[in-house]
Amino acid sequence: MKCFTGVNLKTFFLVSALGIAAASSGGARDVTLLNVSYDPTRELYLEFNAAFAKHWKEKTGDTVTVKQSHGGSSKQARSVIDGLRADVVTLALAYDIDAIAERSKALPPDWQQRLPGNSSPYVSTLGFLVRKGNPKDIKDWDDLVKPGISVVTPNPKTSGVARWNYLAAWGYALKANQNDQKKAQEYVAKLYKNVPVLDSGARGATTTFIERGIGDVLINWENELLLVTRKTNPGQFEIVMPTVSILAEPAVAVIDRNVNRKGTADVARAYLEYLYSETGQEIAAKHFYRPTLESVAAKHTDTFPRLELFTVAEMFGGWQQAHRDHFTEGGSFDRIYKP
């Protein structure tokens, strides 16, 4: 039995090696890129890939096919570290790409400086979803802690977006109270008293609010809220953007080692740069990500109202610090939330 498996394994290697060779050998005419991305960007890149392929064909005559891989952002980063041959990564956090740079050395540590805007071609923020006609008259963060208001947000211990929600609320309270941590904690504690049930994930929270009709307000990503009001459930809900919110900066990077091996460095870089082009920015806006190119952003101010945005870095000293302060065992969330 051993001998047979051995032979076949060898064939596997050969087959796979050949497959890769075939994919890369057509470098002059046919190029395949792998974009390792995170979950909510599927539609965005589906459209962008087609646009880029067209652009690239016109510019160079080459045919470029972009393959996509989607999953949880940090899991995707892990896969790249373990050897998933991404030409480019487009992940939720710069932190995840830092992890790739640090652990696999597949790209330099200063990768973030290689593209404009700290390598974030589009950004997003958090907003509120309320029921049609805004019956509880919710306008800003202060309204969420009023008695009788029911807020839907998932559990920060288990959900990524819930941590963003938590920090956004905390950051708002800091700004409103001249950086008084104690007052901020009081505010967040009051807010979570208004949360009837903590779903374990973003999806569950959305279902709770939309399908089960529980709660007066749902906190979620702006792009997700726009998807609900404009695509999946038009006319049933309204978006309320607070005056202050948190800025999420999804980051993109070329994975140098992989593109060097495959000889796709040029097209990979062009691919990411094209995200900053007017076309790229329009596609981002169309999929409800905030464009960073001023000319495009100006055109979409009714979709993306201007508001004051702060980053995790400037308000909490980075994700690792924020995590230690708020979400570890005995962190602020444990202190304020007693189920």
Binding site: F12, F13, V15, S16, G19, G83, L84
Partner: peptide, 10 residues
């Protein structure tokens, strides 16, 4: 040796 096992068919 440019042999890919995981994240590929093998």
């Amino acid at each position: 040796h440019d042999i890919q096992i995981i994240f590929a068919v093998p």
